[in-house]
């Protein structure tokens, strides 16, 4: 063992003594890692779940062929879902609403908040395109009645209509509504609602597992000093900090 590692280990032990934490050496830890049994099929499923949930339909199809992993959803439904998502992202909200209803009319019927957000996005797009009269008419006829039912809808409506009061919307307090991030937010809400309607979880499992890893390392870190993975993108095992 090189002198460097001896020093590192000694420092780690000193730190551990100071905090009365147990030290798990790299050697011991690697042995534990080797004893863990992770099934290839399960990893394949995890990857498939990511592709499917995130809407990589072609990749999911290829992955099915290459790995023999069955997707947990009918791949055809991904195409429809992605078409809706893309329509919202491109600002074609009417088109998106129609597509959602084609897919399953219950989605919007049972989800007033989502429907309101889509209508709100439609209003935003009208304002963006300078169709002021049409925007006002739409706000009064379609959105205002819904605002009466729900206080938070009303607030959001007022905020959106406020866009009309500013000449330079890019610099106004509600300008973020015109930002692309607003479209993405609405698109992701629709996406989640469609997945839920298909009895599928709205989020892929992989990001949650990564968070769980950080959590588990922190939890163990309260009791012991052990080699951690701090950089998820390399997954390199690091010696305990000194």
């Amino acid at each position: 063992m090189s002198l460097f590692w001896i020093v590192i280990r000694e420092l780690a032990e000193i730190e551990a003594m100071a905090t009365s934490k147990k030290v798990i050496t790299r050697e011991d830890w690697e042995k534990r890692l080797n004893d863990v049994k992770i099934r290839k099929e399960d990893m394949n499923k995890l990857v498939m779940n990511f592709l499917v949930t995130e809407g990589y339909v072609e990749a999911a199809e290829k992955f099915r062929k290459e790995s023999g992993t069955d997707p947990d959803i009918d791949l055809a439904t991904i195409t429809d879902r992605m078409a809706v998502k893309k329509a919202v992202q491109a600002g074609n909200v009417e088109d998106a609403i129609e597509k959602v209803n084609d897919l399953n009319p219950e989605i919007l019927d049972t989800n007033p908040q989502l429907f309101f957000h889509l209508q709100q996005q439609r209003l935003i797009e009208l304002i963006r395109n300078g169709k002021i009269e049409e925007a006002l008419e739409f706000a009064q006829e379609e959105l205002a009645p819904r605002g009466e039912e729900n206080q938070s809808f009303l607030e959001e409506l007022e905020k959106t209509v406020a866009l009309l009061a500013f000449e330079d919307v890019s610099n106004c307090p509600v300008g973020e509504l015109l930002d692309v991030s607003q479209r993405l937010k609405t698109a992701s809400e629709v996406n989640a609602a469609i997945l839920t309607s298909q009895s599928h979880e709205k989020d892929p499992k992989l990001p949650s597992l990564l968070k769980m890893l950080i959590w588990a390392q922190n939890q163990l870190g309260e009791k012991a000093v052990f080699p951690r993975i701090t950089d998820l993108s390399t997954a390199k095992l690091e010696d305990p900090p000194v």
């Binding site: 830890w29 534990r32 890692l33 863990v36 990893m43 992989l206 597992l209 890893l213 951690r228 993975i229």
Partner: peptide, 20 residues
């Protein structure tokens, strides 16, 4: 794979924590 290593680390943390 990287995924494999991350899952192993996750599992090892759970087991070590349980031992404590």
């Amino acid at each position: 794979s990287r995924l494999d290593r991350l899952l192993r680390q996750l599992s090892a943390c759970f087991l070590a924590k349980r031992t404590f």
